[in-house]
């Protein structure tokens, strides 16, 4: 992805894939962790919807709460986490659901893909067995039927000679192949929502593109909503229909992909975009713009903009009052929301 200007590709499909009814609806999701130094707020009042067949990207730096958000959706956080708010999967409330209920949903209606395909598969079981396991758990099919379904799934995700590969162990496959196996496993039960947490970060660039193509293609074909967690704006531009930008546990901006790349409003978003290298830029043109400072670790969410300390446009208002995640005052573009008192695209800044 590096070295080329991100091209928004997914945004075009947004209207076509949209059904208008969200399969996953997140409202006021907050996560705090109890630690030995006191509680830490990791996610604060996050709300978003994802529709069938849609790809929603959640972007931000390390530590901005995107992975915690992803884990909290399926109840995968450790016991030290307290989750409040609401996560509705096709009308079923997941926050506060029992372990048994969540186990019935995970791997079935709500599936995950993780960053490290090297370590995310169990090294002592064949890939076939690991796919069969999820099929037998949720669909109660016979071992034989599950095995042949596993071969079909490996074919679906583009693994050559699947009938042989199904009996191989993870260490016999390449990183890209392993991630394909993870995708096959995640799609085994036809999930409504697929959460992909940095699915291509650990892969070679060429393999990345292939995996992203596969995800987008399968998502559209199977009508699976994809929540893509990433820090890579190139990946976002490649496959996302809409983007949620997170900073220090909050959503700071959300918009259709094309819109976000064309007219970013929050200074954090512009900062992220400024940190992406562009083809043709020379070293003499100056270094890539980075955002100074680090994501703060918050014990309490302050009544202020959490980005103010790193923001070039911050004023006193930003430090004393929390900007709401509000739509731009522009009819027809209400899908673009941002939490900023001095948006980058506003007249006073131009």
């Amino acid at each position: 992805m590096l070295g080329s200007q991100p091209q928004t590709g997914g945004g075009k499909n947004a209207a076509a894939a949209s059904t208008g009814r969200p399969v996953l609806s997140v409202r006021d999701l907050s996560v705090t962790f109890r630690t030995e130094e006191g509680s830490v707020s990791a996610v604060d009042s996050v709300s978003f919807d994802v529709e069938a067949g849609e790809v929603l990207a959640v972007v931000g730096e390390s530590g901005c709460g995107k992975s915690v958000t992803a884990m909290s959706l399926g109840g995968l956080l450790p016991r030290s986490a307290t989750v409040t708010g609401s996560v509705l999967l096709e009308g079923t409330e997941l926050v506060g659901a029992s372990d048994r209920q969540l186990r019935g949903i995970r791997g079935d209606d709500l599936a995950y893909i993780f960053q490290e395909p090297m370590t995310s598969l169990n090294p002592v079981f064949t890939v076939g067995r690991q796919i069969v396991e999820v099929l037998r758990l949720h669909q109660g099919v016979s071992a034989r039927a599950a095995k042949s379904r596993a071969v079909e799934l490996l074919t679906l995700v583009g693994i050559p000679s699947p009938a042989r590969r199904v009996d191989e162990y993870p260490h016999q496959l390449s990183g890209g192949m392993r991630q394909r196996v993870m995708i096959a496993m995640a799609l085994a039960c036809g999930p409504k929502v697929l959460i992909a947490d940095e699915p291509t970060t650990a892969l070679d660039v060429t393999v990345q593109a292939a995996i992203l193509d596969l995800l987008r293609d399968l998502g559209k074909r199977l009508g699976t909503a994809i929540v893509l967690i990433t820090h890579d704006l190139g990946v976002v531009a490649d496959i996302a229909d809409r983007v949620v930008v997170m900073y220090a546990g909050r959503i700071v901006e959300t918009a259709p992909t094309q819109e976000l790349f064309d007219a970013p409003q929050h200074h954090y978003t512009t900062g992220l975009l400024g940190a992406v290298p562009t083809a043709g830029r020379r070293a003499s043109d100056g270094r890539l713009q980075e955002i100074p400072g680090l994501v703060p670790v918050l014990t309490v969410q302050p009544d202020a903009c959490t980005f103010a300390e790193r923001c070039p446009a911050a004023s006193d208002r930003c430090r004393t009052s929390r900007p709401p995640l509000a739509p731009e005052e522009n009819p027809g573009r209400t899908v673009h929301r941002f939490a900023c008192w001095h948006p980058a695209g506003s007249e006073e800044d131009r």
Binding site: L76, G104, R106, F114, L121, E133
Partner: peptide, 8 residues
């Protein structure tokens, strides 16, 4: 984590 994500 994968095993738990599968609902096991």
């Amino acid at each position: 984590r994968t095993a738990r994500a599968k609902g096991l």
